[in-house]
Write a protein that binds this DNA or RNA. Structure first.
Lengths: 247, 247
DNA sequence: TCCCGCGCCAATGTATACATAAGCCGACCG
DNA sequence: CGGTCGGCTTATGTATACATTGGCGCGGGA
């Protein structure tokens, strides 16, 4: 659970709340934070492959820290479900089975749908509506250009932006934790994805419902979107690996 | 996030997964676990009132431990949203505003509804159906006897039992975390609750849908149940305290 | 050759020591 | 008299030291 960037500004903008990329200020960070972000980054990007097992000592050496902050970081990662700690055997990067991934998507979708509902209920300001409109357009452009990676980023941003409007900080926090877990698998199947024509249409429909402030309609449409998208992702994953753990 | 009791048996029975009461084996437990459970217990039961602030040193003294395991426990409690750590000011038991409570219920309900859906999809075995039937009957008996406390316990068990059938461990874990948070407020308003005639009828309806294995129907009915129950709880809370933090 | 049991080693869990830096109070200056 | 600057105190964050316990391998016996 990554807490808010620096100090106050909880509710505020916090544009790109989902944080994998780049680890900008990796240095000059508190040791525990550094360990947490660094390890999380390595896991999400696959630099620490699932199944990898390291001793606390090794992790500490790897990060040039003592065991104390590393342990604390590991506790957080364990709560997030990214690693498993087996008392005499070190910490292992969890491998996600297809079943695990399905479970994660289930939780993630349930939460995200609720977040969308709440956002609909609160209503969009004109600027928010415009911003989201632009995002949908950008996604369509990316699709037209066949730029799936860019589309995927925008998709993330779109969902994340709507979630940010829901006004429930706890919901956002929970979503972030589960988002991290699905991210790994998402990246795996990226190149396999077909052009997301369906998603684009669904996004438009959902955004329409959001603009109307119609909670029930938003739920219905976003629910449909997630169901289809989740099923598609699972199918791709199943294809891309037998059904074993994934790298 | 309390991990599974001892070792394996993840999927298994795990009857009363929700654990506040009694702290049976408080002694002879690992220090970190002890600290975690002990503090959690004190917070949930109100022995550590919201707003209470203690230094790490004081907590350590309180539990007769060194700071290390206490810190680790505190990290977990912070992730769970039960305490707040302000670097030079100690750890504070979070006070729940009405808004916080509403947020918690929102997340909790979203997750629980999904869990019920999944359970419906998987279907109930005859024994499971019978067990749940008996629980509903017991609740009705408790209502008839005006024993609200017992009813509340059974209600918890009923929900928890259905959730346990959903087959998604991550979902269960997330639910447990949020369950802890709503528990505090639940206990506060217990004496104010009217006899839960509505809930009993709704339970029957939901159970009926579960037995049919009808996912959509289950979602609809349980969703209705949660909406009404949540609104009622919020109303009671609002009545019972202005709108400030709660003890 | 296979199985059982003992003993060593090392990884973790806990305690403690130490450095850092933030808050607070007092004093001094305007 | 009020405000601000500076130093002290102390809570935290990190490192390290220490004890425990469980795993694993080796040896002996069947």
């Amino acid at each position: 659970m990554p807490q808010g960037e620096v100090t106050s500004g909880r509710r505020g903008k916090a544009r790109s709340s989902r944080s994998v990329p780049s680890l900008q200020g990796l240095t000059e960070m508190a040791a525990r934070e550094r360990a947490y972000h660094d390890l999380r980054y390595r896991i999400l990007t696959g630099r620490l492959a699932p199944g990898t097992t390291l001793l606390e000592t090794e992790l500490a050496a790897l990060l040039a820290l003592s065991r104390t902050p590393v342990r604390e970081a590991v506790i957080k990662l364990e709560e997030e479900g990214l690693v498993e700690v087996r008392p005499r055997h070190g910490v292992t990067v969890k491998a996600l089975s297809l079943q695990d991934f399905a479970n994660i998507l289930d939780v993630f979708s349930a939460l995200e749908i609720r977040a969308f509902e709440l956002s609909a209920e609160r209503g969009l300001s004109p600027e928010q509506a415009r911003l989201l409109d632009r995002m949908v357009e950008d996604m369509e452009t990316a699709t037209a250009n066949g730029d799936i990676a860019r589309w995927s980023d925008l998709d993330d941003e779109f969902h994340s932006e709507v979630v940010a409007l829901c006004g429930n900080q706890r919901l956002q926090t929970a979503l972030n934790a589960f988002w991290a877990q699905q991210y790994r698998a998402r990246m795996m199947i990226l190149p396999l994805r077909p052009l997301p024509e369906d998603s684009n249409a669904e996004h438009r429909a959902v955004l329409e419902a959001l603009k109307l402030g119609d909670r029930a309609l938003t739920r219905e449409r976003h629910s449909a979107h997630r169901d289809r998208a989740d099923k598609q992702q699972l199918a791709l994953l199943r294809r891309s690996l037998g059904s074993s753990g994934l790298a």
